[in-house]
Computed example of a mutant assay.
Amino acid sequence: MAKPSRKAQDELIQKEIDRINSIFINLPENKREVAKELIERIAFMTIQLEILEETIKTKGPTYLFKQGNQKMLIENPAQKSYNTTMNRYTSAYDKLFTLIDKLNEKNSDEDETEDI
């Protein structure tokens, strides 16, 4: 994927938001609302990771840096960004599932209280 335009990125992000929301379709709307911002951030990171992956595939994870007589192999900045973003992406998904579990536990406790 070549770097898409801002509009195309926004469309891809919205599709990803819709996809993630469809995973949690059985979750009540009020609980999905709590996770809304986290879902939006995860969707953004997903698209950014795809763009970075394509850059790394086409340009490689390293490149030959030349300055005067000095030459050295250095890490592609896209690779660094990818690694950092992937770390945060994984953490964000973990937080999302933790949040959903806590919301479900709270709902389960409320259901038990109502049964009494």
Rank of each mutant, 00 (worst) to 15 (best):
A8K: 15
R19D: 00
Q67D: 15
F65P: 01
M86I: 09
D10G: 09
Q14K: 08
D18H: 01
S108Y: 10
K31R: 11
I17V: 11
Q48Y: 03
K57E: 10
I39N: 02
L52K: 10
N30E: 11
G68W: 09
K95Y: 09
P61S: 14
L99K: 04
I74Y: 03
I25V: 15
D10W: 11
K106Y: 01
P4D: 06
Q67T: 14
N107S: 15
T46K: 12
V34Y: 02
I23F: 15
D10P: 03
F65S: 08
Y93G: 02
E114N: 13
K102G: 05
L52T: 13
E114Q: 13
I47M: 03
P28S: 07
K80P: 00
S22N: 13
D101W: 04
I42P: 04
Q67E: 15
Y93N: 11
G68I: 11
L12W: 04
F44N: 14
D111G: 14
M72S: 12
D109K: 15
M72A: 10
I20R: 02
T46E: 08
L103T: 04
E75Y: 04
L99T: 01
T62L: 08
T84H: 05
K95W: 04
D18G: 00
Q70Y: 00
A92N: 12
D115G: 08
I100L: 07
T98L: 08
T84L: 11
F65N: 11
P28C: 06
L27K: 12
E11F: 04
